[in-house]
């Protein structure tokens, strides 16, 4: 019974479309590399979440300090990537930080996209006054640089990780609202939408069956690029000292900030965490690029 269900699931049109997308993506070297980078980072994050001992890590939630030997020491057999102030092993700290960074950016982008899509589709579908109001509100959010707005919101909320994430979600939904609104506006007068409404489907069903799937492509592409933007923003906020309430929380930006006073004498405290950040960010951009091609109808025939 289970196998039959599985077969019908695999051969369902939606799964076929997803498999086609994946196969086009994997044929593009840039997209494939980005996809693999994303899988690797998510795998590291998951292993650290559920079985940290597999990577030989005992305290995944905190960077272990060593105040008896606090100053950065260069890479050595005991510490392959060196140590940073105060006596933190850079290699394990990076692995621990990947978990928090990856999950945080996934959470911010996921929740932001969900809120933005709901608001955007609603505004685009109903139009008129609601549409105008939503557009003016997003205008306000777009009139501030992300980092500056996040600083202002974060200041009011507090300095824990949850506050940072909440601040970033507040900053990050308007992009998706605009994106889904313009998509909705573009298709809401199409015949198949009208047909769906005439044939007795309610607004809600029409939105879910016809409008939402059509907005999904640009949203997915934007999400993959935003995973990179958000991780850079989180790291930036932590770098300038957002984490006052949680020192030694493993995060790549705050790891780099520990090396900041030693920038001219201990390059390894800065270079290695930055490379971990750069690879993820690069991977997400490459993935987004591949996804754009893979979801482009021109390449799907």
């Amino acid at each position: 019974m289970a196998t039959v269900n599985l077969n019908s699931l695999i051969s369902s049109p939606r799964m076929k479309s997803a498999r086609l997308t994946l196969s086009i993506l994997m044929r593009n070297p840039i997209g494939a590399a980005g996809f693999l980078i994303m899988l690797t980072y998510v795998a590291i994050a998951l292993i650290l979440q559920f079985a940290p001992f597999l990577l030989g890590i005992s305290q995944p939630g905190i960077m272990v300090t060593n105040f008896s030997n606090p100053y950065p020491s260069p890479p050595s057999p005991a510490h392959p990537l060196g140590t940073t102030f105060p006596g933190i092993d850079v290699r394990t700290a990076i692995i621990k930080a990947i978990r928090i960074d990856v999950f945080s950016s996934l959470l911010v982008v996921g929740v932001g996209a969900a809120i933005g899509s709901v608001v955007g589709i609603y505004a685009g579908y109903h139009g008129k006054l609601i549409d105008q109001a939503v557009m003016r509100i997003t205008d306000i959010f777009f009139s501030l640089p992300f980092l500056v707005l996040a600083l202002a919101i974060g200041f009011t909320l507090g300095r824990a990780l949850n506050d940072v994430l909440l601040a970033l979600i507040i900053v990050w939904w308007p992009i998706y609202a605009r994106l889904t609104r313009s998509q909705t506006l573009a298709i809401k007068n199409e015949l198949y939408i009208k047909f769906s409404l005439i044939s007795g489907n309610g607004s809600l069903k029409t939105i879910f069956k016809h409008i939402f799937p059509n907005t999904l492509t640009p949203v997915l592409i934007q999400m993959s690029v935003d995973l990179s933007n958000v991780i850079l923003l989180i790291a930036g906020l932590y770098f300038i000292g957002f984490a006052a309430e949680s020192p030694y929380l493993p995060e790549l930006g705050s790891l780099i900030s520990y090396g900041f006073p030693f920038v001219l004498t201990a390059w390894w405290t800065i270079v290695y965490p930055g490379i971990a950040l750069l690879i993820f960010s690069l991977g997400m951009n490459m993935f987004g690029d591949g996804l754009r091609d893979a979801l482009n109808p021109r390449y799907r025939t």
């Binding site: 990179s228 850079l232 790291a235 930036g236 770098f239 300038i240 930006g253 780099i256 900041f260 920038v263 001219l264 390059w267 800065i270 270079v271 930055g274 950040l277 750069l278 960010s281 690069l282 997400m284 951009n285 490459m286 690029d289």
Partner: peptide, 24 residues
């Protein structure tokens, strides 16, 4: 240009400081 988009600004700033400092 791919790398340029993905570069964290503050990290690039630190790398430039390291590169252009004397003796590094």
């Amino acid at each position: 240009s791919f790398v340029g988009i993905a570069l964290p600004a503050f990290w690039l700033a630190l790398l430039l400081q390291e590169t252009f400092a004397s003796n590094v």
